[in-house]
């Protein structure tokens, strides 16, 4: 196995709620190797999404360290967090979260435009990725004119257009029916292999989880390999 790209050590997270502190997990440690596709499973409310937020610099842990290669993710400033999310990672949510005012190719080009890439360059990269997710004929469609599966594929293209080192997906098929979900998951799997990605996926679907290199189960504040 190649070296660890993502290295998590002693990660703890809790939330202050109306009825005291809610501890999600304590002292989680795990690694994800370069090129690996890891599934995280667990019951609803176990803290899977919260964990992904910490890894993706969308939130900060109470304690512990997160490394992406040499980058100390948990200690980034707000500005560096934004830079990190733009340059190092791609994120796919359960819902497509496309911006309705923009066309498919504009949505995909957005992360590049945000970092100052010239529009023609950003758009042509967006078109390449739309073709990769088999939407080569939908460049200028508004997102509202696309089906649920197509929308999720556009959001996958948006996550990958920056050529991130790590792809996070939080129940990417959770909002889709089985057949469509299968299409999207297969696409993720294919792109993961084709582009040598490193991916961390949260899923409730054990069949999809089984198709990953490794499954980790989040339960009772701990993360253990599932068999």
């Amino acid at each position: 196995m190649s070296k660890a790209l993502l290295d998590v050590r002693g990660l703890s997270k809790s939330y202050a709620t109306g009825r005291g502190r809610l501890e999600l997990f304590r002292e989680l440690s795990f690694e994800v190797a370069e090129g690996e596709m890891v599934a995280i499973v667990g019951e609803s409310g176990a803290g899977k999404s919260s964990l992904l937020h910490l890894l993706a610099a969308l939130d900060k842990p109470d304690a512990g360290e997160v490394y992406l290669d040499a980058i100390r993710v948990d200690q980034l400033s707000l500005r560096e967090q934004a830079e990190f999310r733009n340059r190092q990672i791609g994120y796919v949510w359960q819902f497509h979260y496309l911006l309705p005012e923009f066309t498919a190719e504009e949505n995909v080009a957005m992360p590049l435009l945000a970092r100052g890439t010239a529009r023609p360059e950003a758009i042509s990269a967006a078109r390449r990725w739309l073709s990769e997710v088999e939407l080569g004929d939908r460049f200028s469609h508004r997102t509202g004119e696309l089906s649920g599966g197509e929308q999720q594929r556009v959001s996958l293209a948006r996550a990958l257009v920056t050529q991130p080192r790590l792809l996070f997906a939080d129940e990417p098929t959770g909002d889709l029916d089985n057949r469509t979900g299968d299409v999207v998951f297969s696409l993720i799997q294919r792109l993961h292999k084709a582009h040598g990605l490193t991916s961390v996926l949260v899923t409730h679907n054990l069949e999809f989880a089984g198709r990953c290199d490794r499954i980790l189960r989040l339960r009772n504040g701990g993360l253990r390999p599932a068999n």
Partner: peptide, 8 residues
């Protein structure tokens, strides 16, 4: 969403 992909 904009912030999630790195808009400051």
């Amino acid at each position: 969403v904009l912030m999630s992909f790195g808009v400051r």
